[in-house]
Design a protein around this nucleic acid. Sequence first.
DNA 1: CGGTTCCTTGACACAGGTCAATGATTGTGG
DNA 2: CCACAATCATTGACCTGTGTCAAGGAACCG
Lengths: 223, 223
Amino acid sequence: MAEAPERLAHPLHIRKMRFARGTALYRSGDRLESLYMIRSGCITEVDASSGRGNSIIGFVLPGEMLGLDNLAESRSTTTCVAVETSNACALPRSVFDVLPHAPNVAGEFIRFIAKSGILARELVTLIRDHGAIERVAGFLLNLSGRLQFRGAHDREFKLNMNRDDIAAYLGLRSETVSRCFTELDRQGLIRIRAKRVEILRYAALRRMLDREGTPAVAPHSKC
Amino acid sequence: MAEAPERLAHPLHIRKMRFARGTALYRSGDRLESLYMIRSGCITEVDASSGRGNSIIGFVLPGEMLGLDNLAESRSTTTCVAVETSNACALPRSVFDVLPHAPNVAGEFIRFIAKSGILARELVTLIRDHGAIERVAGFLLNLSGRLQFRGAHDREFKLNMNRDDIAAYLGLRSETVSRCFTELDRQGLIRIRAKRVEILRYAALRRMLDREGTPAVAPHSKC
DNA sequence: CGGTTCCTTGACACAGGTCAATGATTGTGG
DNA sequence: CCACAATCATTGACCTGTGTCAAGGAACCG
């Protein structure tokens, strides 16, 4: 008789956690027992399926959830690492045991999962169909949009990750990322100084990505 | 009293349809009323979100389903076009009205949606972290694996799509795709003659993608 | 304040894009 | 079934964007 109430009270045991730079929240193959809500800092989501461990498929910013897409599987397919000292709330996956009994929530949840696929496809087209400077522009717009969504400053902000992480995410080298930042600055679209960015001409940045008349193929490679 | 039986009988009205080469099964923004099961031919899934209309994010082969990932949204985010004359079965989306009442099916469905995200992320790493010849190798292995899964010949098959479609999918130009095929042939890993491929050294192809010691950055661009 | 990590910049090399020409394959009407 | 046309694939010569290597400077941290 005491059991049912306990099971309702227990699942919402939320832990606050802190992750030092370089620490993994969880690794590929881990049995995923928690969802995370990032409170501060920055997390990289690394795709482990592709041999090399530096294959960054996304950054998670404060206010965003982590681990949702792995919830359908018993084990995680990604590794998540703190780019800098980060704080997160962990909530146990058991909160989702209620799911089958709340169809409308389930629909919301499915939409959330589907969103992660849509985002991945957007990343495909950003990387595959655009040159270096456009990728960097797209990256900045992406960050800006997400900051705006959570009500933070979206025109001037700090890049928590380093150039190598940005480069790995965009399929470039850090030197190229640096040069693109410099070039966008020179063109007056942004102002950049190390990790601080200011977006000066939002619309012009956006236009770099929408160009219809572009050859539409971007990449090259070395090895 | 007659209603319940009727509602069970009606939803499974399956239409057989034929699509001529270049015809769209549905377009981005369409209200998606059907799921499709491809019977023969080949379909390209085109991402409409990125301006240009030739941004191929996937090929759908016979035996595979189409439209599942859009089911959570009311309108499609992709456009699907027949690469060659193709046959499909259309089943009404209403088959999914039963979903909330069958939690175990819902779980299966979520896993299916999640899969589409995982595939998109694999495409990201294939394209972003590999050079041209590795992308082409990965493309062939992908096709081969899917053919094997559905029990078809997986070592010798026909490429239903043309070089331009493959190139658009892999973020290359058709000439480069052609050269890569030729090179893989020259190395004895495959045998290719126009649209017919034979995979001669499967393991060696696979090894091209797993290389740990690779610089891990691939792309370049023109414009 | 000294060391470490990160960012920027330059010189050069090369993968793959571009342009162009030729050859193979497929489809169509006679 | 053949001839012709249209589409598609291949190949070569050359060009450019971005990778590579290297060096110097800025920011951060103890």
